[in-house]
Structure formats: structure tokens, C-alpha cells
């Protein structure tokens, strides 16, 4: 077992498919990114991306404050950074593929 037997199997399978005229179409290239195409689904996903980054930022800031016995300085900084990370997440979600 392993990569070699796997590869030779897929080669033989491909050859068999070609012989019997069952060639596979290449339609799955964009399937990975196009999982949520509808607008409400996209909006919901963008919302969760923003909220979750903010939650993580606040949690990290609160934790650092707790650790260093400071009052709210890390919370303020990391809440802002978390919000920025949320915007970055949304940008990664909606940006055109080339950029």
C-alpha cells in the first residue's frame, strides 16, 4: 500500500475509463470556492467571520489583561485588532480570485 500503488491504481482506472469512453469532465475546479454562492448564505458567512474574529480578539485581550494584571489596555488593543482581523476575513471571502 502507499502512494505508488495508489498512483498506479488511478492510472489504470484512467486507462480503463478512456477505453470505455467514460472520461471524466473537469468541472470540479471551482467547486471548492463556490460552496456558498447565494447572497443570504454569503451574508451570514461574512457575519460569522467578523463576529468570530472580534470574539477571538476580545478573548485574547481579556486573557492578557488577566495574566499581566493590567486593566483593559490589552482588551482595548486586541478588540481593535480583532475587528480589523474580521474585516480582513470578510475581504478574503469576497475578494476577486486574482488579487
Amino acid at each position: 500500500m502507499g502512494k505508488e500503488s495508489d498512483e498506479s491504481f488511478s492510472k489504470r482506472l484512467e486507462a480503463a475509463e478512456r477505453r470505455s469512453g467514460l472520461e471524466k469532465k473537469d468541472e470540479k475546479a471551482s467547486a471548492a470556492e463556490g460552496d456558498e454562492k447565494s447572497l443570504p448564505a454569503l451574508a451570514l458567512r461574512a457575519g460569522t467571520e467578523m463576529i468570530s474574529a472580534l470574539v477571538v480578539g476580545v478573548a485574547v485581550g481579556w486573557g492578557l489583561d488577566h495574566w499581566f494584571h493590567t486593566r483593559a489596555i490589552f482588551l482595548i488593543i486586541f478588540a481593535l485588532l480583532g475587528g480589523s482581523a474580521g474585516v480582513l476575513n470578510v475581504w478574503r471571502l469576497v475578494k476577486p480570485p486574482q488579487i
Binding site: 460569522t48 467571520e49 463576529i51 468570530s52 474574529a53 470574539v55 477571538v56 480578539g57 485574547v60 486586541f78 485588532l81 480583532g82 480589523s84 482581523a85 474580521g86 480582513l88 476575513n89 478574503r92
Partner: peptide
């Protein structure tokens, strides 16, 4: 970037 990475499991 680190916060964006850490937010993955949360989202």
C-alpha cells in the same frame, strides 16, 4: 493575521 488565523475554529 494571527487573530484572523485563530478566528477560524470559532467561525
Amino acid at each position: 493575521e494571527i487573530l484572523s488565523f485563530l478566528s477560524r475554529p470559532v467561525s
